[in-house]
Design a protein around this nucleic acid. Structure first.
Length: 123
DNA sequence: ATCCTGACCCAAG
DNA sequence: GCTTGGGCCAGGA
């Protein structure tokens, strides 16, 4: 008898089911919702799109999107810029032009974290 | 099928 | 603050 899948494994299988293009569309939709002066992390974008654990897919979507998306508004956990060299610099410049402030190498998340509707149940 | 890699995440130490 | 290990997914070699 095959061992029963863990809850985490079950979740993983369910999340794998939809076609990748659907995920891509959902992810792009979410990224477009982030307003000027705000940011969201890769994991938050994935979760808001309905696919928690798919943060790495957000990267793939962004890589393919070019400038059709406000890519500068997606950052790493804690507000860290994850790009390298020139692109990292460009992202920071773009964000600062939108009024986003940094503390060291990170975006001041307390000030610029975008909250998606999914999270408005607090309070 | 296996191995590697990437704009990743996060709990530990 | 930091580095690290283990956990993620998908696409390409």
């Amino acid at each position: 008898m095959r061992p029963r899948a863990s809850p985490r494994e079950i979740t993983r299988r369910l999340l794998r089911a939809p076609v990748s293009e659907q995920r891509g569309a959902a992810i792009r939709r979410v990224i477009r919702q982030i307003p000027r002066g705000k940011v969201a992390t890769y994991a938050q974008v994935a979760a808001a799109a309905g696919y928690p654990l798919y943060h790495r897919q957000v990267v793939q979507v962004l890589r393919k999107s070019g400038d059709s998306l406000p890519w500068q508004r997606v950052v790493g956990a804690g507000g860290a810029v994850r790009l390298k060299r020139d692109l990292a610099h460009e992202q920071r410049i773009r964000l600062e032009l939108e009024g986003v402030r940094f503390r060291g190498k990170r975006v001041v998340m307390e000030e610029h974290q975008h909250l998606f509707r999914t999270w408005e149940f607090d309070e």
